[in-house]
Structures are given as C-alpha cells and as structure tokens.
Computed example of a mutant assay.
Amino acid sequence: MLRWVALILLLILVGLQLKLWGPHGGMHEVQSLRVAVQKQKDENDRLLQRNQALGADVQDLKTGEQAVEARARNELGLIKPGEVFYQVVDKPADGSSVPVPAGSSGR
C-alpha cells in the first residue's frame, strides 16, 4: 500500500514539474509576462515624458508671449511691422531651372 501512495505522489510531482517547466504556462509564461510588463512600463515612461513636455508647452503658451510669437512665426509665417521677410527656395533636384506649367509642352 505504501508503494502505491509513493508512486501516486511521484506521478503528481512529475506532472507538476511538467506543468511548471512546460511551454504552456509555468515559468515560460511568467518570463513572457515579465517582458510584456517591462515593455509596457517603458512605453508608459515615454508617454509620461511626452505628456509632461506637452503640458509645459501648454503652460508656456498660456503665460508667455515669446512662445506664441515663435509659433506664429514658424507655423503661420507672420512677421512684425518693420521686419523684412526673406524666403530661400532650393533648386529642384532634377536639374531644371524653371518649372513648366501643366498643359504646356515646355517649348
């Protein structure tokens, strides 16, 4: 009788070890979950930094004139009275110096 109990306990132990070290569940799943949690923490940190930068930008736009002026200059192309506006145009990459209007033969 004692042998049967020992055999059953041994089979249970082997089954639990297979479950623990097998590919489905157990240690493999724990490790993959740890990796997923670390990736999520990294993503959360990145998004937190972005949110803090955006919050600082919003606060600067609400309180500072320089930020509003810089945005108006960069995004809208506005200039102050008395300033001179210069626009630099790069040459086209294909080597032609004058663009040809649509529908024209170019002659």
Results as ranks from 00 to 15, higher is better:
P23S: 10
A36H: 09
A56Y: 09
V14H: 08
S32D: 10
L10N: 12
E75A: 06
A36M: 08
L76H: 05
Q40A: 14
L47Y: 14
V30M: 12
H24F: 11
D45T: 14
G15C: 09
R73F: 05
L16Y: 05
L76C: 04
L9R: 12
L10G: 07
K62W: 03
I12G: 05
Q49R: 13
A67S: 05
V35H: 03
H24G: 06
L20P: 00
A36S: 15
D45C: 05
T63S: 08
G64N: 15
G77R: 00
E75Q: 08
K19R: 10
L20E: 11
D57S: 13
I8C: 04
A67W: 00
V58R: 11
Q52H: 11
Q17P: 01
A53E: 07
R50P: 01
V58K: 08
A72K: 05
K39E: 02
L76G: 02
Q40F: 10
K62I: 11
L33Y: 09
L76A: 09
T63E: 15
G25H: 03
L10F: 12
G77V: 03
V58N: 07
W21H: 10
D45W: 10
A53L: 07
L48Q: 11
A72W: 08
A53F: 04
I12W: 13
G55K: 00
M27E: 12
N51M: 08
V14I: 14
D57M: 03
G25M: 06
G77L: 00
S32A: 12
E65Y: 09
Q49N: 06
Q31N: 10
E69V: 14
Q31R: 08
L16P: 02
L9C: 15
Q66N: 09
Q59I: 09
A67D: 01
L7F: 11
G77I: 02
D45S: 15
G77N: 00
R46L: 01
N51P: 01
Q52Y: 05
L7C: 06
E43Q: 06
T63V: 15
M27N: 12
I12S: 14
S32N: 13
E65R: 14
N51K: 14
Q17K: 13
K62G: 08
A53Y: 04
K41N: 05
R73G: 01
L54P: 00
Q52E: 12
V35E: 01
S32K: 11
L54R: 06
G15P: 00
L18G: 04
T63D: 15
K19A: 14
Q31I: 12
L48N: 11
V14S: 11
L7M: 10
N44R: 12
Q59F: 08
L16N: 14
D57C: 10
R71S: 04
R50L: 13
E69Q: 13
K39G: 04
K19V: 03
A56G: 09
L7H: 11
D42K: 06
V37E: 01
K62S: 13
G15N: 07
E65L: 11
K62E: 02
N51S: 13
N44Y: 07
S32E: 15
K41S: 10
R50S: 09
Q66I: 01
L10Y: 06
L20N: 11
A67T: 01
S32F: 07
R71P: 01
D60Q: 04
H28L: 07
L61T: 09
A56E: 13
Q31H: 15
V30Y: 12
L76Q: 09
A67H: 04
L48A: 13
H28N: 15
